[in-house]
Design a binder for these strands. Structure first.
Length: 376
RNA sequence: GGGGGAAUACCAAAGCGGCCAACUGGGACGGACUGUAAAUCCGUUGACUUAUGUCUUCACAGGUUCGAAUCCUGUUUCCCCCA
């Protein structure tokens, strides 16, 4: 994998770049649709490519390991082959499930014992087997196994958790560096900064992660309920420490406004379930603002969802039609809304990239943040 | 013609003397959702108004009772069975 830094913004820390993988290159800043269980929910791979123009999608180690399981994935020739996706992929390590499955898991130095959310069976995740599992899944970018701490989180816990995440990283690297990809292309391991919302911990973690010299770096443990200002503060703090010539991935972020703000802080990669999950729940992100398509006000609004983003689905179907499908709980509602929201997210980062290259990112961002945060 | 049963808020349906402005579904309306245990979850749904009060409700009209959606009488409508 190779990262080429292309242009730095003069009024902010925003930058553009190209991330080149064995499955093709990614133009940054980029948003990566989340496809937890080998599918971006409600969206075909064909639509991801043609309509949404996704350049890279995510998968999840925990979910794929439970189902379909590694045997199937290996027999299929890896996740790319299995799902029919020939562009880059990234897998999360299960670190987020350490956070989200808080009620059904136990953390120790050695690793984490999970209770499967599917059948209640017990499973053990540790840095070593998480690397092995991600080798079997075969994503281009794989994530270190970390503990994503909740918010709020007291200082003592945040500190000891961060230190354990660092020790886990060394174990991840040992295993990763002593193994090879199984399917003939290379994989890269991204370490993850933790430290909750404590400046000194974030600095310490960023320095530790930067020192490892991996091919890209991630910021984790944010967007877990803390105020956006704190998230920006932590992000700004660590992007200043991370090497400029490596891509920076802010995990789990976020709203359109969050993404624009964090691009300005020097982040290159984002992922979030928000465009897909909220689409299924009737919330649309558009170039004019946020729409709750269930609201009565759209009942007879026959204007297209969002013609400005140049996507066929978004300029063809009307708000009134999508509202009808949503209110009727029709499957097509989830499909159209998901395609639209993802198209919008990809359009948004594409626009950001163009404005960084054009040199007017800061002023464009200021007006865009306002627009995309408006409730229609 | 004879016998039996039922009428409750937008719909369906509990309640069968006080704890009922009335269970529960659905619908309608509104909100939440940030490395996906989520096509999920939460709230409101008589009025005035937000104290957690007042007023008007359970087909219609009377009545019994300190007190009725709940008991009695009559009226209207609907359903079932027998002729």
């Amino acid at each position: 994998m190779k990262f080429v830094l292309e242009k730095k913004d003069t009024h902010s820390h925003a930058r553009t770049g190209s991330l080149i993988t064995d499955h093709g290159s990614i133009q940054t800043p980029i948003f990566m649709p989340v496809g937890t269980a080998g599918t971006v929910k409600a969206v075909h791979q064909r639509e991801l490519k043609k309509d949404i123009q996704a350049q890279i999608i995510l998968g999840n180690t925990y979910h794929l390991y439970l189902r379909p399981g590694l045997d199937t994935l290996e027999k299929a020739g890896g996740l790319h082959q299995f799902i029919g996706w020939d562009r880059p992929m990234l897998t999360d390590s299960g670190g987020y499930q350490v956070f989200s499955l808080a009620g059904t898991r136990k953390i120790k130095e050695e690793g984490v014992t999970f209770k499967s959310h599917i059948d209640g069976s017990k499973h053990f995740f540790a840095p070593e087997n998480v690397m092995d599992i991600q080798r079997s899944i075969g994503a281009d970018i794989i994530m270190a196994f970390d503990e994503c701490t909740p918010y709020p989180c007291d200082y003592a816990y945040a500190r000891q958790s961060m230190e354990m995440t660092h020790r886990w990283l060394l174990r991840c690297q040992d295993r990763f560096d002593s193994t090879e990809g199984k399917y003939g292309y290379s994989q890269s391991l991204f370490p993850i900064i933790q430290g909750s919302v404590y400046k000194d911990l974030r600095i310490q973690s960023a320095e530790f992660i930067a020192k490892q010299g991996r091919e890209g770096n991630a910021i984790g443990g944010l967007s877990v309920g803390e105020p956006a200002e704190l998230m920006y503060e932590m992000t700004e703090l660590v992007t200043a420490i991370l090497p400029a010539d490596k891509p920076r991935y802010l995990m789990g972020v976020g709203t359109p406004a969050n993404i624009l703000e964090c691009i300005a802080l020097g982040v290159d990669m984002f992922d979030c379930v928000m465009p897909t999950r909220n689409a299924r729940n009737g919330m649309l992100f558009t170039s004019e603002g946020i729409i709750n398509i269930r609201n009565e006000k759209w009942k007879d609004d026959f204007s297209p969802i969002d013609p400005a983003i140049g996507n066929e689905v978004s300029s063809t179907y009307s708000k009134a039609y999508l509202r009808h499908l949503t209110v009727s709980k029709e499957i097509l509602a989830a499909q159209i809304a998901s395609i639209h929201n993802l198209s919008f997210y990809l359009w948004l980062v594409g626009e950001a990239r163009e404005h960084i290259q054009a040199g007017d990112f800061a002023s464009w961002k200021a007006s865009m943040v306002k627009k995309v945060s408006t409730r229609l």
